[in-house]
Design a binder for these strands. Structure first.
Lengths: 301, 301
DNA sequence: ACTCCTTTTTTGTCCTGGACAAATTAAATA
DNA sequence: TATTTAATTTGTCCAGGACAAAAAAGGAGT
């Protein structure tokens, strides 16, 4: 079976590497080395697309492209080596349980995973379920993806099923009617929604009035939505995969677009490395988010 | 309050128009006409970004860029005029009810919308709920967005809340264990998920074993997932907004990637204008999708 | 008037190769 | 060992040309 070659647009879609990057890598490093079709346009064999995807994965993990492209195929070793993050001791029972849940996904047994998680939710209650089950699981899925033991579609299945659990749990809560009114969304190009759902669950538990707008809102629309819904707080989420360099400028631009009386909160793994920004509250952890909520209420009696 | 200018990357993110398109429009039509920053790079005033968004909206509706850019501001009239699609007579009571539901979204009363829809679901049952409530509502939201009476964030809120309802309803169904095993997903750049959820609901009602992988799966990953899950059918969804010219080549490429024994089904409003493709089943309506499911079962006893 | 075929215009995408600034690493200094 | 400075790496942007696929316009035949 011969998989046909990919055009440059298809490679961009499938790898997340922009056309500019693909061309400049070819010029500088000699890789990728697509052949040309009848019109002189680049035509990438599936094999090179796979390799590009691997390189992208390792880059998101912190490696640099120059090194990765130079290395022949021993990357595979460096790949596994770097993800040996030692796990905190003393929680081995818990770790085992989470591992068992991940194994269910790995076996592609979605139904069993869903059932097991439902039980956990009932046992722990929503707050601890989010903080002690969903959040650590998400982290471990990320690690498993980085070290190659999880395929992308395993991650997708995990995400999809977990999203359902969280949404179901949120829908079961009484509708929040008290302040603050919190608008939850993400900027364009940021499509990870799990973090947003987790924080929505926590806020909804506290009785806040959450307005979930889904992901990928253009900045100007976020501003309009905040006015139209008279939101007290606009909460954004940034995943690790989001291009770091853009986050700061993006937040500052949004700050200028938003009504001054609306607070701007940013959370997610992507903002860990960020320094302080004027008029933006950076909330890297759930505890900080809950504390910020309490602070807001104290300041707005 | 002065909203700062946008860089070309920000405009691409917020409007969905590629950098290439933005530059070539400027060269050909003289619009947009960004000023230049200190580095000679394009810098788009927020006003022009808004206008670009409007143009994009009208283009998705079928208008051509050359005309739109030439027209000064009378587009606003042409905009409203074109969406006067006469509604089918005889269903006015039903139309009224749907209109009332839309009005709830428009009033930004998410809670009331959710409650009303829940009632409808209980009354109609899932199948009729999908076909007679969700599908027509989705169509009307699309129309409302095109003629400007819905903001983008209204559409996002509608989508988000409706997704929740559908997922909840699907989760309440007994787990499908019988054939066929259907893998549901969409290709990269296609992020509309409502159609996928609607069809999942219908398939799940028929007892099929649905594997929801969420949206935006790279083609090669879809192939792998189909093998790993031993899927009988891979079902993809394309919205109207998806670039038409790419759909056919994309489907043919995926056909070659998939195991030959796996069927490839494509649905959604985006495939309406498509002609027949070898090895791909085009299913523009829900009825056709259900018929295809029945056919599959008849052929695989 | 309507359909089918051909020609022209429109429009998006791709190309080359240069430039530069922000981020990162390496070197040098206190 | 810290902290500043120089060098390198790397992503993004630019200009302007080219081309093919899609859409519109024109023409011939039934």
């Amino acid at each position: 079976m011969h998989i046909p070659d990919f055009g440059i647009a298809a490679v961009e879609r499938d790898t997340g590497l922009s056309k500019d990057v693909l061309r400049v890598w070819e010029r500088r490093y000699g890789f990728p080395a697509p052949r040309r079709d009848a019109n002189g346009e680049r035509s990438y064999p599936a094999e090179q697309v796979e390799r590009l995807r691997l390189i992208k994965r390792l880059m998101d993990q912190g490696h640099r492209p120059g090194k990765l492209i130079a290395a022949a195929t021993e990357e595979l070793s460096g790949l596994a080596a770097c993800s040996l993050v030692p796990r905190a001791a003393g929680e081995n029972g818990e770790v085992e349980q989470l591992g068992a849940l991940l194994a269910l996904i790995k076996q592609r047994n979605g139904a069993a995973y869903q059932q097991a998680m439902q039980q956990r939710l009932a046992r722990q209650g929503l707050q601890r379920f989010v903080q002690d089950s969903v959040a650590p699981l998400t982290r471990r899925v990320g690690e498993a993806w980085e070290d190659g033991s999880f395929e992308i579609f395993d991650e997708h299945l995990f995400t999809e099923l977990t999203k359902r659990l969280l949404r179901q749990a949120i829908a079961a809560l009484p509708v929040g009617r008290s302040r603050p009114r919190i608008l939850l969304t993400s900027v364009p190009d940021e499509q990870h929604v799990l973090g947003l759902l987790m924080v929505e669950a926590l806020f909804a538990l506290e009785g806040a009035d959450c307005i979930p707008l889904g992901v990928q809102m253009p900045l100007l629309e976020i501003g309009r939505a905040a006015s139209a819904h008279r939101a007290d707080i606009v909460a954004l989420s940034f995943s690790v995969a989001f291009p770091q360099r853009q986050i700061a400028v993006l937040l500052q631009q949004l700050r200028l677009i938003l009504p001054p009386e609306a607070a701007l909160w940013a959370g997610g793994a992507g903002i860990r490395r960020l320094v302080k920004l004027d008029g933006v509250d950076l909330l890297p952890t759930f505890d900080m988010a809950l504390a910020a909520l309490a602070d807001w209420r104290a300041a707005h009696p």
